[in-house]
Structures are given as structure tokens and as C-alpha cells.
């Protein structure tokens, strides 16, 4: 089953390498949001350290939704998804593959942009390894829920509007966990950070397992 998922990841990476649609759009949009936040909250006058985790995650989640929207568009074109469903082996592997590819893209964006956020908003870089753990875990929850809902929304006339409406209410626990854990990591408060990391891990587990179980039923027809 993992082989099927990895084949899908490889395919998504090659397609993305050609199109550069998802990475470019998400990167540029998130960086623009950082710039807008700079003008709106004025890092020259104010110390933004307190609200920095919130600003950063809002930008990542909003920008990431753009990328997630694209995720199933290539699959719906030419009915390629049907081709994946027809292939032998577990159909849940399709969810796993799409999710892993999205996680990879989103993590890459965050790795590039997190230093940019710190620099643009005049916040001194803190957090180190804990921050890396927060980025990794929060992105798992975000892309797992996002991949699932992107697959659902792809079957509607209004998928691009619908995805954020479906995704954000379900994402609230990740928003809370990511912001609190980031704040904890930046303040050097390891206990708080770890507590919220645990909550994120629990959310991740639910939102990887449940779609994994349900997804194959959604692919029929």
C-alpha cells in the first residue's frame, strides 16, 4: 500500500515541479500577508512578539488553503482520480499519498517563510527545535484535514469558495494548538509547548485515521 502512496507522491512532486503552481502561489501569498501584517500592525512602533504566533499561523493557514484547493484539481481533470481508484490495492492509499504530498509542499513553504516572518515583523528568532516540532505537527493536522476536505469540495461547482468554509471550523483545534505551542516555544516555556504539542498530535491522529477509513467509500462512483 505504501508503494501506491509513494507513487502518488512522486507523481505530485513531478507535476508540481513542472507547474510550480502550488508552491509559488502559496509562497508568494503568505509572504504578501506578512508584508500586509507589517503595515497593519507596524513592527517599528510596536513589539509584535506577543501576537507573532497568531500572525504567522493565520498567514500559513490562509495561504495553504490556496494550495489545497489545487490538490484535487489535477485529479479531477481527465478523470485521473478514477484511474487511481481502478488501480489494485487499498484505495485509502490515495488519501495517504495526496496527504503526504501536500504535507511536503506545505512544510517546504513554512521552512522558507518562517525566517522571513521573523525578519519582516522584527521579532527575534526563538524557539529552535521546539518550533520545528510545532511546524511539523500542526502542518500534519492542517494538511490531513485539508486534503480530505479538498477531495470533498472538488466534487462541487464552488470548490474554491467552499474549501475554506468547510476547513476552518474543523481546523480550530489546530489553530489554537499551533498558536499556543508556538508562543510556548518562543517564550522558552517547554512545558506549555509540549502540552500543546500533545494536543496537536492527538488531533493529527484523528484527522489522519478517520479520513483514511472513510476515503475509500467516497471514491466510488
Amino acid at each position: 500500500m505504501l508503494a501506491k502512496s509513494m507513487a502518488i507522491v512522486w507523481k505530485d512532486v513531478v507535476v508540481e515541479f513542472r507547474a510550480k503552481e502550488i508552491l509559488a502561489a502559496v509562497l508568494i501569498f503568505a509572504a504578501l500577508v506578512a508584508l500586509i501584517f507589517g503595515f497593519a500592525f507596524d513592527p517599528v512602533e510596536h513589539d509584535l512578539t506577543g501576537i507573532f504566533p497568531g500572525l504567522m499561523w493565520v498567514a500559513y493557514f490562509f495561504a495553504g488553503t490556496l494550495g489545497l484547493n489545487r490538490s484535487f484539481i489535477t485529479e479531477k481533470q481527465n478523470d485521473a482520480l478514477q484511474g487511481l481508484v481502478l488501480a489494485p490495492g487499498d484505495r485509502s492509499a490515495i488519501f495517504l499519498g495526496k496527504f503526504l504530498a501536500n504535507w511536503l509542499f506545505m512544510t517546504l513553504v513554512e521552512l522558507i517563510l518562517t525566517p522571513v516572518f521573523f525578519a519582516l515583523l522584527n521579532v527575534s528568532f526563538k524557539g529552535g527545535l521546539l518550533l520545528a516540532a510545532v511546524l511539523a505537527l500542526a502542518t500534519v493536522g492542517f494538511t490531513a484535514a485539508g486534503t480530505f476536505l479538498s477531495g470533498l469540495a472538488a466534487n462541487t461547482r464552488a470548490s474554491e469558495v467552499l474549501l475554506p468554509i468547510l476547513l476552518f471550523p474543523l481546523l480550530v483545534p489546530v489553530v489554537i494548538g499551533a498558536v499556543r505551542a508556538t508562543a510556548g516555544a518562543m517564550a522558552g516555556d517547554a512545558a506549555t509547548a509540549v502540552a500543546w504539542l500533545r494536543a496537536l498530535a492527538a488531533y493529527d491522529a484523528v484527522f489522519v485515521v478517520v479520513p483514511f477509513l472513510v476515503f475509500e467509500y467516497l471514491l466510488e462512483g
Partner: peptide
């Protein structure tokens, strides 16, 4: 595993 299908769509990825 034993079946091949030609459907309405081509099942192809345009960018590959």
C-alpha cells in the same frame, strides 16, 4: 489487477 479500462476521461496527467 486483471482489468484495464478506457473510460470517458483519459485518466492522464497533462503536465507529465
Amino acid at each position: 489487477a486483471a482489468m484495464g479500462m478506457v473510460g470517458h476521461g483519459t485518466f492522464l496527467y497533462d503536465l507529465l
